[in-house]
Simulated assay, not measured.
Amino acid sequence: MSTVLVLKDIKKEFHGATIFENIHLSILTSQMIAIKGKSGIGKSTLLNIIAGLERPSSGTYFLGDIKMETKNLNQLSEIRKKKIGYISQHSPMIPGLSAFENICVPLWFEKNMNIKNKAMKEITELSRVFEVDHLLHKRIEKLSGGETQRIGIIRSLIHHPEVVVADEPTAALDEETASKVLDYFKKLKSKGIAIILATHSSFVAEHCDETYLLTKNELSHVNTSEKDRKVGMNK
């Protein structure tokens, strides 16, 4: 395994207030980690930085050999398109379009037909895995929250990202469906993909290789015995 992502001394401020600072993190290929923390502490903001949707106020972020904090928003968008699968908490969709059409949004400006054809095969496979193949023709607003979340997950994976960044990816799912999503993430991990999950769920954290706790002043590793104890308390 090799290092795919490194955060060094990341700090984020908003309107002069510090959201978090002293954030250090190193992630390997084929590793799945959970980031936990109380509501409002900045988990989504940290994931947005990792996904290239926001820039840190200070610090260094390497994605492979790319120094992310030096890139402008257009460059970050291109990097995200090629290397990062981002699953947002609420999976924003375009109303009036079908579930299938919403999945295909990342392909709208793709001119390479080989890439498009591979993506179509991936959509077919993932739709079956996540049991939404019978819903692809439906308008997105007709789907439930859990169904929409699964459509968002599929959309983020069709271009075979090197890193998957997921913000509460199972929040709207029942435990059985959440288990299927996590099992698929493990398959991705076995193929060398790194996966970062923000979650409140101990059930999700149990499936990860490492768990980290985000506070305003640091991102601290939760060791195995402490993790097991916390999971036991929250079951």
Rank of each mutant, 00 (worst) to 15 (best):
D65V: 12
I66R: 00
I66H: 00
K67A: 09
K67P: 03
M68C: 09
E69F: 03
E69H: 10
E69P: 01
T70L: 13
T70H: 07
N72A: 06
N72G: 04
N72T: 05
L73R: 12
L73I: 14
L73W: 07
L73Y: 13
N74H: 11
Q75R: 07
Q75K: 09
L76D: 04
L76E: 04
S77C: 06
E78I: 11
E78A: 15
E78N: 14
E78S: 14
I79W: 04
K81Q: 10
K81G: 04
K81D: 08
K81E: 10
K81H: 11
K81F: 11
K81S: 11
K82Q: 08
K82F: 04
K82S: 08
K83V: 02
I84N: 00
I84P: 00
I84S: 01
Y86P: 01
Y86S: 03
Y86V: 07
Y86D: 01
I87P: 00
I87Q: 00
S88C: 12
S88D: 10
S88N: 10
Q89T: 11
Q89P: 08
H90Q: 14
H90M: 11
H90V: 10
H90E: 13
H90A: 13
S91G: 09
S91C: 09
S91R: 01
P92N: 12
P92S: 14
M93A: 13
P95W: 05
P95T: 09
P95D: 09
